[in-house]
Amino acid sequence: MKPTIHYAVVTEAVSMREVEELQTIVWGNSTISPTPQLVASVHNGGVVIGAYDQDKLVGFCYGFAGYKHGSVSLCSHMMGILPQYRDLNIGYQLKQQQRLWAIDYGYQKITWTFDPLETRNAFLNLCKLGGIVRTYIPSYYGEMADEVNKGLPTDRLLLEWDAMSDRTLQAAAGTLLTSEVWSGYRSLVEWVPLGSYARPVQRHAIEEEAGYLIPVPRYIHEMKKDELELAKEWRYTLREQLQEALAKGYVITGLLRSEDPVHYYVVEK
């Protein structure tokens, strides 16, 4: 039976310790925001929202106040969900709860980073939530040794989520631009099958078309275990192609999913 999940803003230190414990389950001890930091943040413009199955914490998201170039935003730093509770739309609901809290608190924009190789996160962030990406950051966290990041440069995309934009509201209503339009765009990278994976083999120049597709592996977690050098090849291919597209005025607006061993980032003017 599908559990009934409810959501609540977390403020008390004892509840923050549950959030800290959940982080260690998801990422291990090397990548956590400790309880004192969480408590200090929520008293200074930040927020922690928990997802609960009855009284059990099964997921959370955490954001703190940010300021850059004269503009204030909510930096959504972490979101984690227990493995057995994934695929229940909890991540989407946590983000929507965070957006509603941000609006009430006076924020207009929410930002966060994610790994461009993580297509599951990309689809949520771009297609289901309606965020966009204008910025690629190579090796954002430097070298990391945790299970998720070890062996690869920690490149990240900076997602910008306007809390009340037409795009965000369309995404919430399920009426955002469909993949029928995106499928007509030309791919900037050719690839060939390699077992159950794919290898990038040829890149094309960016001209002045309205949009392009940039392939990204579907099975990056398995690839990192089986073919780490191939995963690195994709890391650097994506870095080059996405940085070039962004530098030429394109914006990452979606992820086109396919039955191939790759999905495709959508970049548009």
Rank of each mutant, 00 (worst) to 15 (best):
233 E>Y: 12
39 V>A: 15
241 Q>I: 14
265 Y>A: 06
126 L>W: 00
144 M>W: 09
86 R>V: 05
107 Y>H: 05
95 K>H: 04
237 T>N: 05
160 E>G: 08
55 D>N: 12
240 E>H: 15
24 T>Y: 04
253 T>M: 13
176 L>E: 09
53 D>C: 12
218 R>M: 02
150 K>E: 13
117 L>G: 00
77 H>Q: 14
22 L>T: 04
166 D>Q: 15
94 L>Q: 07
100 L>G: 01
163 A>Y: 08
54 Q>F: 00
74 L>W: 03
269 K>Q: 14
187 S>A: 00
118 E>P: 00
220 I>W: 13
248 K>T: 02
133 V>T: 07
96 Q>N: 06
13 A>V: 13
70 G>P: 06
257 R>A: 12
239 R>M: 14
78 M>L: 11
233 E>P: 11
242 L>A: 01
197 Y>G: 08
129 L>C: 07
80 G>V: 00
82 L>A: 12
49 I>M: 08
65 A>K: 10
104 D>T: 02
173 A>P: 09
13 A>H: 13
235 R>N: 11
213 L>N: 03
127 C>D: 15
86 R>I: 05
238 L>K: 07
85 Y>W: 06
23 Q>D: 08
206 I>M: 12
40 A>E: 13
152 L>A: 02
254 G>N: 07
185 Y>S: 14
261 P>R: 11
2 K>M: 13
258 S>M: 12
151 G>A: 11
257 R>V: 14
169 L>Y: 14
75 C>D: 15
66 G>A: 10
100 L>S: 10
115 D>E: 01
118 E>W: 04
201 V>P: 05
244 E>P: 04
91 G>D: 06
104 D>C: 05
249 G>F: 04
186 R>T: 09
47 V>P: 08
64 F>I: 02
143 E>R: 15
11 T>G: 01
2 K>G: 09
142 G>A: 13
79 M>H: 05
32 I>D: 07
8 A>T: 11
50 G>P: 03
115 D>I: 01
197 Y>V: 03
216 V>C: 07
212 Y>G: 09
251 V>G: 10
118 E>T: 02
246 L>P: 03
143 E>K: 15
245 A>D: 07
205 A>L: 14
215 P>H: 09
256 L>E: 10
129 L>D: 08
184 G>W: 07
17 R>K: 14
136 Y>M: 11
193 P>H: 08
173 A>C: 12
144 M>L: 15
51 A>Y: 02
213 L>G: 03
268 E>D: 08
86 R>F: 02
53 D>I: 07
242 L>G: 05
1 M>A: 07
167 R>S: 04
97 Q>W: 09
157 L>K: 01
68 K>E: 08
130 G>E: 01
230 L>D: 05
229 E>Y: 08
211 G>M: 06
47 V>L: 09
29 N>R: 04
177 L>R: 14
263 H>Y: 10
